[in-house]
Design a protein around this nucleic acid. Structure first.
Lengths: 205, 205
DNA sequence: TCATGATTTGACCGCTTGGTCAAACTCACG
DNA sequence: CGTGAGTTTGACCAAGCGGTCAAATCATGA
């Protein structure tokens, strides 16, 4: 509720330490699966000390989700209606894939929340997220109407980018179990580029 | 461990009732998040009665996962090396999508398990799943070498089908929050068809 | 220096958890 | 009807859970 700007250096440091530890534990176990003791151990603090900085387990969790949602949707917001369509869409997919590579725990935190019915963020999805997607879908639709990219369902196109990119973070264990290479991301970059290029590039007529 | 064929009708019925209840609860909350009391309530049995049919919470969970894994990989096994490549791949994607539509709880159960590091099935992934994927990737590679479909990374192609189809079950809440239509699946079918057709159909040269 | 507020913690609480057990109940079958 | 195996359950347990609290410690600025 009230996170009226923390004042002392210790507060700033410890809140950060706790959020980092919380991210680690929540993303690996989900909200119910995580325990305050785990988070406290990970943070190097005692459990009561944790609850001195955050009023409850849920407060740590929602603080993480709030911070996450913003940065998570930035790549989609950055899609420029005045730019070159193919470059913009491919760039969006690559930026989203980079998020999966660089912030896999954030991706898994979000995936856990959605998988379990989005108890904390369902309303935000129906308002903020829907508004953003509707807006960007219109941009895509305009590009299609102008013949700059091939026609397809813009919303499912956006879904597909979310799905394909987050998959590499969320299903990391499965991918590494199946793949021979150490790092799946170079191959993924290349594949996504090819996939969306062949879907979107207008064909000779 | 030992599920030496249950004998009486009551055993057969109750084991089934418990597994159904367990699927409901585990898929919605993950392993740690689910409780025996929830499962017992869902099954209409008392908690000790549950533990008369299964030795532990984990036993219910692994029984579900075991049964799931088989049916989950069937569509990929069904991919026919002697069939028409595009038809086979598109058919595989559609069959996988149908699984997401008809068995969303199974999909979410599996997603929960993988998300949390696949503690129960990691070994199976590295052996059985990897073997199957390697085998099918070779089939795809042969089709590419024969010029029947365009060249791309066969393993990432398989990943993409998993990702795109399971997304509609696992992220159901998010999709319904954003989409206007009641049922996302007709649109998804159509989009996937278009996506893989444009990726795979050899271009005029 | 000391006083005051910020920080830390051991001990504790009530509740839920997975699991046990002995006793009771049910049911098929001779 | 009776009897023994199969089934069900209330009572219970130890461990773990989120959270509280008073007391101790630390930091800081007058």
């Amino acid at each position: 509720m009230d996170d009226a700007a923390p004042k002392t250096r210790i507060q700033i440091r410890n809140r950060k330490v706790i959020l980092t530890a919380g991210l680690e534990v929540f993303s690996a176990n989900g909200f119910r699966g995580a325990t305050l003791d785990q988070i406290a151990r990970e943070a190097g603090l005692s459990k009561p000390n944790l609850l001195y900085y955050f009023p409850s387990k849920e407060a740590i969790y929602t603080a993480l989700l709030d911070a996450l949602l913003d940065t998570w949707l930035d790549p989609l917001r950055a899609l420029d209606p005045t730019g070159d369509p193919i470059t913009e869409i491919l760039g969006y997919a690559q930026r989203k894939l980079a998020l999966s590579r660089d912030f896999p725990r954030e991706s898994r935190l979000f995936a856990n929340e959605i998988l379990q019915g989005a108890p904390m963020v369902r309303d935000l999805l129906k308002t903020d997220l829907k508004a953003l997607v509707d807006d960007r879908a219109e941009v895509l639709q305009n590009w299609m109407d102008a013949g700059l990219i091939r026609r397809t369902d813009p919303v499912h196109l956006i879904f597909s980018i979310w799905s394909l990119t987050q998959h590499y973070a969320d299903f990391d264990v499965q991918i590494r179990a199946v793949l021979d290479e150490e790092d799946p991301f170079p191959g993924a970059e290349c594949f996504l580029d090819q996939l969306y290029r062949s879907l979107l590039e207008p064909r000779a007529r």
